[in-house]
């Protein structure tokens, strides 16, 4: 990994500079992570006096547990829907904004601010919209004969969290798509125009293919977002219910461990999630334009 051509000769100073970051990382990240791995192979007696090595028991139980398999299924559904909706709409809006010159800043401003909305808040906003007694969307749906109740109907609950999660993520995807489109050289679209390609054709044959690194990057980021950052949305709305319909993996690991106090199973779930993030990070740095050059 590179440094500057010339470096300062001090021997102690650099250690002092990296120490705070390293200490926090070791104490609050790496140590707890190893503990999670360790306790996923152990069972503690009810009084916490001794622990016993149980090998893969927790993992085997986990993947035989219909509730966990259900949670995986729900997570996959949730992830696909949120990623597709938020990326699709963001791509549409970015393509539209990039056609404009004078008003592009104006629309951008109006589209980006949901980035700053907390997941919890996003959850409550949509919960209110869909609330069966006061929500305007529930009210409108009733007009179409749909009796909306996310408290009782699992599909309704799923739609609710998908809407909230996708809504919040549009702004992020929009900004990256827009940045990607702005970096496509004008000469390319101009050449295509001279070659007789209309605006739609230019978009699909020139701009969109050139955006593929951005698209792939966003895909990874969105999966990460849906898997982890949506905790607040679930916690503020459905709490995983009704009847496990929205109990996605990140919420389940919390409720089983922190509320249900099932340490072994929760640790095994943690380790599964950890492997998942490691894989995502690996893919991101291996195939996406790299953030780090070493």
């Amino acid at each position: 990994m590179e440094t500057k051509r010339t470096v300062f000769p001090n021997k102690v100073l650099p250690y002092l500079f990296v120490a705070p970051q390293l200490i926090i990382t070791l104490v609050f990240f790496i140590w707890p992570a190893t503990q999670a791995v360790k306790s996923s192979f152990e069972r503690a007696d009810p009084f916490g006096f001794s622990t016993q090595f149980v090998g893969l028991t927790h993992y085997i139980r986990l993947f035989q547990d219909p509730l966990y398999l259900n949670s995986i299924g729900r997570t996959v559904m949730f992830a696909i829907a949120v990623t597709a909706i938020s990326m699709g709409l963001a791509l549409l809006f970015a393509a539209a904004v990039s056609r404009l010159i004078r008003s592009s800043q104006f629309y951008t401003t109006l589209l980006v601010w949901p980035y700053a909305v907390a997941p919890v808040v996003a959850g409550i906003l949509w919960w209110f919209l869909f609330n069966s007694s006061t929500g305007i969307l529930a009210y409108m749906l009733r007009y179409f004969g749909v009796i909306w109740n996310a408290n009782l109907n699992g599909t309704h609950a799923m739609i609710l969290i998908i809407a909230a999660a996708a809504w919040k993520q549009i702004s992020y995807n929009f900004l990256f798509f827009l940045a990607g489109m702005q970096s496509v050289p004008h000469s390319l679209t101009e050449a295509a125009a001279i070659d007789g390609a209309g605006p739609f054709k230019r978009f699909w044959t020139i701009v969109f293919p050139l955006l593929s690194p951005t698209t792939f990057f966003l895909f990874i980021i969105n999966i990460n977002y849906v898997m982890f950052d949506t905790f607040g949305i679930i916690a503020a709305t459905t709490n995983g219910g009704p009847n496990q319909a929205t109990n996605i993996l990140v919420y389940k690991v919390y409720s089983d461990g922190f509320i249900g106090l099932n340490i072994g199973s929760s640790s095994a779930q943690s380790v599964v999630l950890m492997l998942f993030v490691i894989a995502l990070t690996f893919i991101q740095f291996r195939y996406v334009e790299r953030r780090v050059n070493y």
Partner: peptide, 9 residues
């Protein structure tokens, strides 16, 4: 290692 994968420890 987001906090979600190491909650209890």
């Amino acid at each position: 290692l987001p906090v979600e994968v190491r909650i209890i420890p």
